[in-house]
Simulated assay, not measured.
Amino acid sequence: METTATQESKQTTLQITGMTCAACANRIEKGLSKMPGVTNASVNFAMETARVEYSAGEVSIEDMQNKVKQLGYKAITNQENEDAGHHREHEVRLQKRKLLISAILSFPLLWSMVAHFSFTSWIYMPEVLMNPWFQLILATPVQFYVGRQFYVGAYKALRNGSANMDVLVSLGTSAAYFYSLYLTINWAVQGASAHHGPSLYYETSAILITLVILGKLFESLAKGRTSEAIKSLMGLQAKTALVVRDGQELTIP
């Protein structure tokens, strides 16, 4: 937290975690700006920071943190940064693990989809890949374990009367998954064969989640490099100046 005081106002910088898109930054910025005592709030999505000008007598940093928490995110001060310093590294490791799990489970579904076209009929495809129950087993962990973060983000956004990318991903993948689940149950009730089933869309939801997770991993890596580059650039700022006063050279901050 960097806090500077002027005559009646203060300025602080908070680290924001949990943002997934620019809409999240806009929502936090609007929420902070509407707080009594806050004169200006600016949220930088790339740097994951919020710079707030406020009147200390009307609002506190704890109030701002509670407001950000109410919106579904987390605001961290530099005093807490010792615990939050590895948040970005943890996020990258988490996205890598989820991407690996999602890719492994989605590949057989992608295989069954590609081999299903007439012009790719020459590709060998194990019979089990067309079994609806097998596809359901593969798609379910991707939908509800790997994709859980999208449901959580969508819930937080809708609870606050707004929408973001998580809402779109949740709606799109849920439509494909639950429609396929309905077809699978209907196929089983009708006593169909053990292998061949209806046209399903499990691969649509699983592959979409995999690609979005891949994008979020790239985003986390890019944010880390950008943040470090900006910090390095700021470190190049001159700390002192050489001035001439009354014929004498002086070094001042």
Rank of each mutant, 00 (worst) to 15 (best):
I209M: 09
N81R: 14
G172C: 05
F218M: 12
L168V: 12
G147L: 00
G85R: 13
Y155L: 09
T226M: 11
E29N: 12
L200S: 03
T173F: 00
Q149V: 06
Q135K: 04
A23S: 12
T173A: 03
E29G: 06
L71C: 03
D63L: 05
A206H: 05
L110R: 07
T6V: 13
T20W: 08
S42I: 11
V92E: 14
D83A: 15
L200K: 01
P126K: 00
S102Y: 05
T13N: 09
L105Q: 04
V169K: 00
A56E: 13
I28M: 11
Y145Q: 04
G191D: 07
L168F: 06
C21V: 05
F45L: 12
L168C: 03
L14M: 04
F134S: 09
Q149E: 09
W111S: 06
A192T: 14
S205E: 07
Q190H: 11
F144K: 01
S118I: 08
K223H: 12
K239Y: 11
P36T: 03
N186K: 08
N66K: 15
Q95A: 13
L109C: 05
K10P: 05
Q237Y: 13
L211N: 08
T3C: 09
M130P: 04
R88Y: 01
Y177I: 00
A41F: 10
T20V: 08
V244A: 15
K239C: 08
Q65L: 08
